[in-house]
Design a protein around this nucleic acid. Structure first.
Lengths: 144, 144
DNA sequence: CTTAATCCCTATTGACTAGATAGAGATTTG
DNA sequence: CAAATCTCTATCTAGTCAATAGGGATTAAG
C-alpha cells in the first residue's frame, strides 16, 4: 500500500499539472483545493523540491510549480520520493539495491527471482504513467 | 517492501515444499534450518494455517505440512496472509476492496487508474509463481 | 494412564514509522 | 518597511513490526 503522503503528493502534483500554467501556486491554495493538511503538504513539497520534481519561489506571491514538464514526471518518480523503492525487497531494487541481511546466495534465491519479476512488472507500469497523461485523462472525463 | 514475516513465511514454506514428503515437520526443525526465531515462526505458521496454506498435526510427533499441493500455493497467496493485499491502494484491491477515505469520484480518479494497472501487473506475476516451481528451480541450481 | 513432546493462544516489550502540528526563521515583493 | 510566502527543526500520538514469554490444550508413545 502507498502511504497517505504519496496520495497527497500525487494529488498536489496532479493539481499543478492540470492547471498547466507556469505561475507558482501557493501551498494554501493546493491544500484547500485538495483537502490536504497544510503543514503536512508543506513538508511533502519540500521533499519533492529536493529531488527536482517541483520548484519553489519564495517571498510574497511565491509558491510552487512543477520542476520539469509534466510528461517527464512519472508516478514512479513520485512514489520513490514519498515511499522509497518500488521493489518488494532491497535485493531487487534498481534505484536502491542492498543485499538482504540474511541472504545465503542471491544468485540461487528462489524468492528473489519472483520478487525481481514483480518489481520489473510494477516499474514498467509506474514509469510509463506520467502527470501529463493523467491530467489529460481527467480533462477527458470532464473532471476539470 | 515485504515484511520480515513474509520472508520467514516464504522460506519456511519453501523448506516444506523442497522436502516433498507429507510427514509433518516440527517447528524447531524449520526454525533451525532456516534460522528463523522459533516463537516468531510459530505465530507465522499459525496464521498460515488459518488460511489453509499449511496443515498442523498436534501432540507428540506432530508438526506442520503443506495444506495443499505446492503447485497450488502461489507467492501471492503467502504475501496476502503475511502482508495484506498486493494492491497499492485499497480501491484497487481485488481481494480486499475498500473505497479510499477521501475519494471524490473513483471512476474518474487518475491515480486509481495507474495503481490499478500496477496491481494487475504485480498480481499477474505473483499469482503465477508457486512453491513447486520455486523448489524445482532450487533443485536445478544445486542448492538442495 | 502417565508423560513428554508437540501445537495453540494471549500478552507484552522495544524500536521504529506515519501522520500531523507548532513555531520561529529566511526571503522576496509591493 | 511590512506582509506574504517558503524553510527548517522539533515534537506528539498512535500504530505497526519484530520478537519474546509463559503458559494451556492435545496427542502419541511408553
Amino acid at each position: 500500500m502507498i502511504s497517505q503522503k504519496a496520495r497527497y503528493a500525487l494529488r498536489a502534483l496532479l493539481f499543478l499539472a492540470a492547471r498547466g500554467e507556469d505561475t507558482p501556486v501557493q501551498i494554501s491554495e493546493i491544500a484547500e483545493s485538495e483537502r490536504i493538511p497544510r503543514k503536512f503538504l508543506e513538508a511533502i513539497l519540500l521533499e519533492l523540491k529536493k529531488t527536482g520534481i517541483v520548484r519553489s519561489h519564495r517571498g510574497r506571491s511565491g509558491g510552487y510549480s512543477l520542476g520539469r514538464p509534466a510528461k517527464d514526471i512519472s508516478f514512479a518518480d513520485v512514489l520513490r520520493v514519498t515511499d522509497g523503492p518500488l521493489a518488494l525487497s532491497p535485493c531487487v531494487s534498481v534505484m536502491a539495491y542492498r543485499k538482504c541481511d540474511d541472504c545465503f546466495d542471491e544468485a540461487v534465491c528462489a524468492i528473489r527471482k519472483a520478487l525481481l519479476a514483480a518489481r520489473d512488472a510494477t516499474a514498467q507500469i509506474l514509469e510509463s504513467r506520467n502527470l501529463a497523461a493523467a491530467a489529460a485523462q481527467l480533462r477527458r472525463s470532464g473532471a476539470l
